[in-house]
């Protein structure tokens, strides 16, 4: 499969890239979604700007009590980062669940979340982490929350000419248990449903809980009704089951040849229970 013709630029600087993007070029990162779409002619950009060539977008570091991940950090770099493994294990666990080895070697966190595939893995974790997204245009830079960033299927808060420069996640200390649980589509590895959970317990009661869900609907979301139901509970298996039952509340569930909407809702409950139990078991 040959794509349509396009012009290609490997810019020397972020400014050069932003200048090209402002005049209508499209960003290319790992290409793990864009290139297959171009082959199928679902996308036909006239000019690609290769962000992977920019070394100053590729980093994972701690600063100001938070973790900063440059847009072109690959899934493998996230998965194998000693810093993230220690301070944000939910993200390393999620990165390791993406696609396969070859895809993780090429695919980038920025490319994945900017593409906003409703079945991508990262968005569940980033919703549960209440991540922040730094969006940079030629003239200005702004930071948006995960709740604002993921708008709809393949649609984010990015404006034309803007790129996602960095993802910021909080540091989870050992008192926070986390887990990402997914049902993978066997051929593509995409999440039919994926659930990320973060939990803290204080004096035997759940003092903090965040649940992010992907694959179920048009965009990844935080299951706030389920979170509220679990907060302050012991948490017994019955408490967890009751909270998980609310995970798909008010959600218009996807249906396709892999899973009907009813089955997806069922999977969401099952994987929420698994994610919460595993997260609780990991609290140090």
């Amino acid at each position: 499969m040959i794509t349509q013709k396009f012009e290609y630029t490997a810019p020397k600087s972020l400014d050069e890239a932003l200048h090209l993007l402002a005049s209508g070029a499209k960003p290319l990162a790992g290409g793990m979604s864009l290139i297959p779409m171009m082959k199928l002619r679902l996308a036909a950009p006239e000019h690609l700007v290769d962000l992977r060539a920019l070394k100053d977008l590729n980093y994972i570091r701690e600063a100001g009590g938070q973790l900063h991940i440059g847009a072109t950090a690959s899934h493998y770099e996230v998965e194998s980062s000693a810093l993230l493994r220690q301070k944000c294990p939910l993200l390393t666990e999620t990165a390791a669940a993406i696609g396969d080895v070859q895809v993780r070697n090429m695919g980038t966190i920025g490319g994945s979340v900017a593409h906003a595939d409703p079945a991508a893995d990262y968005p569940a974790a980033l919703q549960a982490l209440e991540a922040k997204f730094v969006l940079k245009g030629a003239k200005s830079e702004r930071t948006v929350s995960a709740a604002e960033f993921f708008v709809d299927t393949f649609t984010t808060a990015l404006e034309p000419g803007e790129i996602l420069r960095e993802v910021i996640v909080p540091i989870d200390d050992a008192r926070t248990g986390t887990s990402y649980q997914k049902m993978a589509q066997p051929a593509s590895g995409f999440a039919i449903v994926g659930v990320a959970a973060r939990v803290r317990v204080n004096a035997g009661k759940v003092s903090f809980v965040r649940i992010g869900v992907t694959g179920l609907s048009n965009r990844a979301y935080r299951a706030t009704a389920a979170e509220k139901a679990l907060e302050g509970k012991t948490p017994s298996p019955a408490d967890i089951q009751a909270a998980a039952a609310l995970v798909a509340q008010g959600v218009d569930a996807n249906s396709d040849l892999h899973a009907s909407s009813d089955y997806r809702r069922h999977l969401a409950v099952v994987h929420t229970v698994r994610a919460l139990k595993t997260a609780l078991s990991r609290i140090a």
Binding site: G31, N105, M106
Partner: peptide
């Protein structure tokens, strides 16, 4: 690094 050469320009 192992990559899939059909999905790279």
């Amino acid at each position: 690094k192992a990559i899939k050469s059909c999905s790279m320009f």
